[in-house]
Design a protein around this nucleic acid. Structure first.
Lengths: 327, 327
DNA sequence: TTGTAGGCGTTATCAC
DNA sequence: GTGATAACGCCTACAA
């Protein structure tokens, strides 16, 4: 391994000068700067992150805990975060808890001593534990509000309400909601916004797993009921619904209106026949990083100096499907 | 921050003893072990990863570079790797190159000084650069073979060949292949295996983006041609095909047979009407980590001592759809 | 079994 | 503008 000292020796300067040249070039004479740089180049010098971290107290690492990497929801969130983190010189350490609170806790314990900040999505941590973690290290949560912990949320309420309104205006009298995974907080919120917008009770199917297959199954239950529109928790479910309804002879959107709660598999752009709630997931990931960076870079005496930020992004509706009148 | 010394002072021993207690407990008397442990507990001691890394030369970090986190293909690969890495005490640093060779190169340069090993999927790195990287740090590639660099691959050839054979046996005379992204090596291989299995030329549509929407569009091109079966590069495309064909009045699988090149969105379990190539992606991720771990943990004088391993997993066919005779 | 002491590669605080 | 030098927190011979 090539060290600062090796470069220093070759360049005929001290290691302190090399260090300065590499981190704050303007503090160094132009001539020596060049000498040092070419020496570093020749030796193929790579700085040692651990040593730097030990000396500065900064690992330049941000941890991101998610309940699943298999779901299509979290990868874009991670992508957004990674993108922004990289721009700021940070790298992202991902931990997939596979929805196991036990595992999540131990992953976070490990992360604490390893990273400068932690991003939490879909956490199962109890409020007090979360607050405790946030006390030890900067934390930002996603779609989860805990006192004194900054968070980023995507507010789907307006979009689901609008969805309800449009269905009502489209003349639909009976509308179904196909719910997401059991125990999902987002699920309940979406349903109540939809109901509020629709102006009357919505018929609920589920909870079910938010998969294509589940959508196909639910279609069989739905078809005979007389509802003329269905709002699915997410895009895969909606696609499954469409498929299932299609095999039962219903044409979308002529005979039946389908809407999706997210656009993660690109269903929105693809299908003018599908109404879709657009969630700015990647942007949310970026925002999460922005918030921790603000906390991290704050030179102020920390504590109350840096106001804990909380951001809420707004989900929007895609354009109408070509026809959305009920049959 | 609580350090070893703090714990040592409270426990009335030296920091060396604390260090030993925490890393190799059996080297320490039971009584002192307990004393140290309770002291560490009381203080809430968390070891500092940077300091440990500097002292041991091990960061306990593995880098994983992927071209995209948005695609549904790589997250499961990462999940498998993360899972295995965690079990071995390692954490995973992810880098999304967004298919930009430039960005990938700079990410890898950063990673080099930060992690103990690098996993590469869908890399755009030229062979020589890749070899150079592998020379500096343990590297494992996915679906990419470079001399002297260990790799993991999923061999889809047998499955696609079998697919071709089954279609032939099912009586299909004209079969379509809907190709994946332009320039994909996997794409060409799949087509030729399919063709070989089918025993005669397959009609190619594409290349197209492997999305649901693209599948819908291709369905319009496909429907009038007289082919009775279509094999899609991946699951989303296949779903799009089914949808598009469905809206044009074709029933699957009664009127038309559709097959998918992967099962990443759970299409296989969901749809008995869809033939699906099952790819052990998560297992591949695990294998990649296993290989680097073997290289890392090898106490032998490295170089030729640890044989560079290469694994090839085999993709398999899902069960037949309920009916696969052509109409 | 335990303590002492040196070193891991960088940064940062001083003088010069 | 540059060079010693002391941390940073931990690990690990080596000695006791």
């Amino acid at each position: 391994m090539v060290t600062l000292d090796d470069v220093a020796r070759l360049a005929g300067v001290s290691s302190a000068t090399v260090s300065r040249t590499l981190s704050r070039p303007q503090m160094v004479a132009a001539s020596t700067r060049e000498a040092v740089r070419s020496a570093a180049e020749r030796l193929g010098y790579q700085h040692n992150a651990s040593a730097r971290a030990l000396a500065t107290g900064r690992t330049m690492l941000i941890g991101f805990s998610v309940p699943s990497l298999a779901s299509s929801y979290f990868p874009p969130l991670i992508a957004g975060a990674q993108n922004r983190a990289e721009a700021a010189g940070y790298d992202l350490v991902v931990a997939d808890s596979r929805s196991d609170p036990q595992r999540e806790a131990s992953q976070l314990a490990r992360l604490r001593g390893r990273v400068d900040a932690v991003l939490l999505a879909g956490t199962r941590l109890a409020d007090p534990h979360l607050a405790e973690l946030a006390d030890a290290i900067p934390v930002v949560t996603f779609n989860r509000v805990v006192p004194d912990v900054p968070s980023v949320a995507i507010d789907t309420a307006p979009a689901f309400a609008e969805l309800g309104r449009r269905l009502r205006e489209g003349g639909h009298l009976r509308v179904a909601y196909v719910g997401g995974p059991a125990g999902s907080a987002a699920d309940g919120a979406r349903l109540s916004s939809l109901t509020a917008g629709f102006g009357q009770a919505v018929e609920v199917f589920g909870p079910v797993e938010p998969t294509f297959g589940a959508g196909v199954e639910v279609a069989d239950l739905l078809a005979p009921t007389g509802v003329t529109a269905a709002v699915a928790y997410n895009g895969l479910l909606a696609l499954g619904l469409m498929h299932g309804l299609g095999t039962r002879g219903r044409r979308i959107p002529e005979d039946f209106t389908v809407a999706a709660g997210d656009d993660l598999i690109g269903s929105a752009q693809a299908l003018s026949s599908l109404m879709t709630v657009l969630q700015p997931v990647e942007e949310a990931g970026r925002d999460m990083v922005d918030i921790v960076l603000a906390q991290l870079d704050s030179t102020a005496p920390e504590s109350a100096a840096t106001p804990r930020r909380t951001l809420t992004a707004r989900a929007d509706m895609s354009r109408d499907p070509e026809r959305e009148d009920p049959s």
